[in-house]
């Protein structure tokens, strides 16, 4: 088991953002958490990457308890996140942003970094064209690609993607999801948080549905995509 989240509770002040959620991610999978705004998806993501303190419960990565490990130590273990809202370093160039992705890698000085950068440029040719452009001047879609590419530069075992399709044009959404599938096929495990449930369920091996801070359903992507209740609430009736 790559990631095990067990009975996790996270608060914002007195407000319970997530309550007793448990889920797992196995090596090689794409797992998605879907749910409406405010369901606790991003909070869950931030807890896995260490940005939010945990009130109760445990987070285990490769069997190791990382519940209270600071966020900046987690990339070394192999956890990388593309955060909600992209979080590109807007004053840095594309190359500098990608190098930041490899900041914590022990082999950051080896030629492997160049190979990984070429891999990112292979996935996102657009980034290669803009390699010396400052991130803040790029479009939302390009910044999204950069955020994913930057996370890949950490050469992660587990890639956390928080709303990668947010604010993007439909054509670009398709493209981003194709790339997520491709990344997974190249061997990276993906935990995906999405509001675009149709795409997320189509791409995911397994899925969990979050409602007001609790997991209310789980199953394979296909199961949930064909479930009438899920269709009605999250897929607008057709996939």
């Amino acid at each position: 088991m790559l990631l095990e989240v067990d009975e996790l509770c996270v608060n914002y002040g007195r407000i319970e953002a997530i309550r007793n959620i448990s889920f797992t991610v196995r090596e090689g999978e794409v797992v998605t958490l879907i749910g409406a705004n405010g369901a606790g998806k991003t909070t869950t993501m931030k807890t896995v990457s260490g940005l939010r303190p945990v009130r109760q419960g445990t987070v285990r990565f490769q069997g190791e308890d990382i519940t209270s490990m600071p966020a900046h130590e987690r990339p070394v273990l192999g956890i990388a996140q593309s955060p909600e809202g992209r979080g590109c370093f807007v004053g840095m160039t594309v190359i500098e942003n990608l190098d930041m992705g490899a900041y914590a890698r022990p082999d950051r000085k080896s030629p492997r970094i160049n190979e990984d950068r070429d891999r990112v440029f292979g996935l996102f040719p657009r980034l290669a064209e803009r390699r010396s452009q400052v991130a803040g001047t790029m479009s939302g879609g390009e910044q999204q690609m950069l955020a994913i590419g930057r996370a890949l530069m950490a050469n992660p075992k587990l890639l956390l993607l928080d709303e990668p399709s947010m604010g993007l044009a439909p054509k670009l959404i398709q493209q981003i999801f194709d790339i997520i599938t491709e990344i997974n096929e190249q061997g990276t495990t993906v935990l995906l948080v999405e509001q675009n449930a149709a795409q997320a369920l189509k791409r995911a091996h397994r899925a969990y549905i979050l409602e007001t801070g609790e997991i209310v359903r789980e199953g394979t992507g296909d199961e949930l995509a064909n479930d009438p209740a899920v269709k009605a609430s999250y897929l607008g009736g057709d996939v």
Binding site: L51, V76, G91, M100, Y103, A104
Partner: peptide, 24 residues
């Protein structure tokens, strides 16, 4: 330098910097 880049990363986006492994 790498450390200099870490400083800029924290200045521009502290949370994203932590996700990159920068010790704030």
């Amino acid at each position: 330098s790498r450390l200099g880049r870490g400083i800029r990363a924290v200045a521009q986006d502290p949370e994203a910097a932590a996700l990159m492994g920068v010790n704030r």
